[in-house]
Design a protein around this nucleic acid. Structure first.
Lengths: 190, 190
DNA sequence: CTTCTCAGTCAACACTTGTACACTATTGTT
DNA sequence: AACAATAGTGTACAAGTGTTGACTGAGAAG
């Protein structure tokens, strides 16, 4: 799995990485691959599981505390951006899989995103603005938030420079977008 | 180009389609490929150009007329959704390329999206709410809108059923999201 | 009528691909 | 000490890969 991930990080598309390349990069003979996975798709699904696990752990650790919504948003995005930069290869892979993976992989990514949307929904339910909002509407808002954060991830990854400034530019930009959504959500029921 | 496109439509990832497959599918010998393109990347760039052209034509035809913003949004999304369904293969390809293509392809998609963001900006400048908004802020809003519409395109494509209802569900969902953004944008300057 | 350009063909190359089969080394459990 | 499970090795094969070079036919341009 680590081998496949580094190959993706080197600029290869997961779809066009061969079982043999993975084996070679792992310092192992091709036939050994079958001791671990039936094929590349299975390996991909395991990678996605692993990332999902890490993300959930992160989510639990940075659970939304009662706080001023502006700093709360900013802090969340900052944490997310840091996590992405620490696991670039995973996110390249996840982005590729969302649109270009096999049906099973695409579905797995979708499920992951849906999970975050739901978590977010139960979290922001506590905020006074959303206390008595229709569940469907709340779902749309959280979907929009998750999509917004996730959509620009690829742009963050593609920045050639990986210095502090690039990351904070991404954070600023994303926070502004989220602020618009918050404002819109606040006006929603009116 | 048509050959490559149908292969993508059949569920293949553009990245892992071989030059030979394209030639075969086009009913031509592999070496003939070189009469048209240097390699698959060049073919991909041409495909993106073609799609860009079609989209611009569509944009010009459905130029925003002075109208009630709600019906205007709805109408725009409906037209877009129809266009996507009429050119499914192109959009599969574009989505794959955005995150999984070669650097040149990714950049080309980014440029395309930026173009739409800019077009949208000059269009909605006319609306009273945005008349005197900071250009940077307006850019962020249009970026958010374009991302929102584009992000959910893959979900529209992945619907197994392609009936009227599926499409109109997508339209409803997207319009709601855009409505939130409009509301938020209206509150922005305050 | 000749000439040139374009899109096509054929054969060949060196290399990579997924997978099958039989075998070996390592390791944890009884 | 013996055993079973796990992860590794080597060889082999048929199929597919990008790209080469030299050749052919159709039609446009002169």
């Amino acid at each position: 799995m680590q081998s496949a991930l580094t190959l993706v990080g080197d600029g290869n598309n997961f779809n066009s990485i061969s079982l043999r390349e993975v084996a070679k990069n792992a310092g192992v003979v091709p036939t050994s691959f079958y001791r671990h996975f039936r094929d590349m798709e299975e390996l991909g699904l395991h990678l996605l599981d692993e990332l999902g696990l890490m993300l959930r752990k992160l989510l639990r650790k940075t659970r939304l505390r009662d706080d001023y919504i502006e700093t709360l948003t900013r802090e969340s995005v900052r944490v997310y951006a840091g996590f992405v930069m620490e696991h670039r290869n995973y996110f390249y892979f996840m982005n590729q899989s969302r649109t270009g993976g096999t049906p099973a992989l695409r579905e797995a990514v979708r499920t992951e995103l849906r999970y975050f949307s739901n978590e977010l929904a139960t979290d922001i339910r506590r905020l006074p603005i959303f206390a008595q909002m229709n569940t469907d509407d709340l779902g749309i808002i959280t979907e929009l938030i998750v999509e917004t954060v996730f959509a620009s991830t690829i742009d963050l990854l593609d920045q050639t420079k990986t210095d502090e400034k690039t990351t904070s530019d991404y954070v600023d930009n994303t926070v502004k977008k989220l602020r618009i959504i918050w404002l819109g959500a606040g006006e929603w029921q009116s």
